[in-house]
């Protein structure tokens, strides 16, 4: 699939005009991207470490998942919106950046994994699940989101 036309369009969009004309705007949006990553990471880590039985063992798994999920949703929305804005500033370059594509692939998989696999599996009665299922889900989740963050950071180095 040729993705270049999309990035060429993004490169000439109003978002690109703003992000290229005002460096300060780009930096501020970048800070919000980073701050929402902090919230997303904190909530994912709290829920996965609970599933692994590392933290908050005296708090029911349901309680931890129900409390972290709204903040995961909110931070994902901010991450995606700020991410689109940041992409517009270097659109053509990103089309040829392999770490950008690694991040997009892992992000897409992370979102699919969270909403289509992890949440539905953990929504029911946990006692009916194999004892290892929550732990395997937590390790998979931590691995996927670490990959998203690490490949995202490496875009700037490559």
């Amino acid at each position: 699939m040729d993705t270049l036309p999309f990035f060429e369009w993004l490169d000439t969009s109003i978002l690109a005009d703003i992000s290229k004309a005002y460096g300060g705007t780009f930096a501020i949006v970048q800070v919000f991207h980073l701050l929402s990553m902090v919230v997303l990471g904190g909530m994912i880590l709290t829920s996965d470490l609970r599933l692994l039985g590392v933290v908050m063992r005296d708090v029911p798994v349901d309680t931890v998942l129900d409390n972290t999920q709204p903040w995961i949703n909110r931070s994902l929305v901010v991450i995606i919106l700020t991410g689109i804005f940041m992409s517009s500033a270097v659109a053509i370059k990103l089309n040829y950046n392999e770490f950008f594509w690694a991040k997009m692939a892992s992000l897409a998989f992370g979102i699919f994994f969270l909403y289509a696999i992890k949440r539905p599996l953990l929504r029911g009665d946990l006692s009916e699940l194999n004892a290892w299922t929550p732990k395997v889900l937590a390790i998979a989740s931590l691995t996927v989101w670490f990959t998203v963050a690490a490949s995202g950071r490496w875009i700037g180095f490559s």
Binding site: M37, G41, I44, L45, R153
Partner: peptide, 29 residues
Amino acid sequence: GTHVLTLMVFLGMLAVIDLRMLGLAFKDV
């Protein structure tokens, strides 16, 4: 990269604690 990614561990945990103190998360704990 480690400095930036560890933000999620240190500040991520701090954010969870502070959001509880603000009454915005984990109100039932």
